[in-house]
């Protein structure tokens, strides 16, 4: 290729995450943090409850992020962030963004009460849930974000998960938040754009990030981005935003959705599924997709 051609840079070059962190190979969560901070910038404080990122960041007295991190208890991501925000307001700092960065366990299950409280008070924080669909840090236990049909260590193959994934976006939309978005690590430009947009909005902002986990999903580490992309292209994890609790926008209009089987077959946690069970999952995905299209007015 020609030597004169410039490198295509579509997202900010600044790195706020240093290498040497403790994430597994091909970790979707570490990629999510890297992209999120590219959108939020240097003036950010992160509150991290017990989750994979509490480990990835590194042991005391080291940290792999170039911004301040506050490690808090499992259920308090949102309330700690509210507290940090209140402290910053007291010293007159309105510029700094407070980011609560919790996993799906800390958002869907354990932290839901604190999150709902912060959302009700409309505290000025960015709450991000990076969703790897189980308690990966403690050994792949089922969470309420685990999708139907999935294997985890607490839902073994014979008794795989029969319940649906909790509709966290629906719950947050019911709170009427100023900004809600879903983002995927496979679409970095979209993700950085959403975090940048969230930074400029005041009030509680909720971003649901899809972060594949090779260790827990029993997938190949190199497939992380492919899985995240397939999740969007199959309609399993659509990319959309909700402004002021009512204006829905679909960011990526998938014309021809791929069959969900393509996404499922790359993961060992769905290996036990039979043809008719995959058909059932396909129907669920279709129903959810139709609902989101309807909400977006399409």
């Amino acid at each position: 290729m020609s030597k004169e051609r410039k490198m295509t840079i579509t997202i900010p070059r600044e790195e706020y995450m240093s290498p040497g962190h403790l994430a597994c190979q091909g970790c979707g969560a570490s990629l999510a943090m890297r992209l999120a901070l590219k959108g939020l910038g240097q003036k950010t404080i992160v509150c991290i409850p017990a989750c994979c990122w509490a480990v990835i960041d590194g042991p005391f007295p080291h940290s792999s992020l170039d911004i301040p991190i506050y490690h808090c208890a499992f259920e308090t991501a949102a309330s700690s962030a509210s507290g940090v925000r209140a402290g910053l307001d007291m010293v007159g700092d309105t510029e700094t963004t407070v980011l609560a960065w919790a996993g799906d366990g800390g958002t869907f299950d354990i932290g839901l009460q604190a999150l709902s409280g912060a959302a009700e008070r409309n505290d000025d924080i960015v709450y991000t849930c990076y969703d790897n669909e189980a308690y990966m840090n403690t050994g792949i236990q089922r969470s309420s974000a685990t999708p139907i049909g999935a294997w985890t260590t607490t839902t073994p193959v014979k008794h795989y998960k029969k319940e649906r994934k909790k509709d966290i976006i629906g719950i947050m939309a019911a709170h009427g938040l100023p900004y809600i978005a879903t983002a995927s690590v496979a679409y970095p430009e979209d993700m950085v754009k959403k975090f940048r947009k969230a930074r400029e909005i005041r009030g509680t902002r909720f971003i649901h990030v899809f972060a594949p986990c090779p260790a827990g999903w029993k997938s190949r580490p190199e497939d992380t981005v492919k899985l995240a992309r397939l999740a969007v292209q199959t309609g399993y994890f659509p990319l959309f935003e909700i402004e002021n609790g009512e204006r829905w926008t679909l960011n990526l209009k998938v014309k021809e959705r791929k069959p969900i089987a393509e996404y499922l077959k790359l993961q060992g946690r769905f290996r036990h599924l039979k043809e008719d069970e995959i058909t059932l999952i396909q129907q669920e995905v279709d129903a959810r997709w139709e609902k989101i299209l309807k909400n977006c007015g399409l």
């Binding site: 290729m1 410039k6 490198m7 295509t8 070059r13 240093s18 994430a23 979707g28 570490s30 990629l31």
Partner: peptide
């Protein structure tokens, strides 16, 4: 010699271990 400088490898590295040096990954 075959690199088209699309920046995709740099963009997706979960370990921030691909640097851009003199406009090359």
């Amino acid at each position: 010699s075959r690199c088209i400088k699309c920046g995709i490898c740099w963009k997706f590295c979960p370990d921030a271990s691909i640097d851009i040096v003199d406009d090359w990954p």
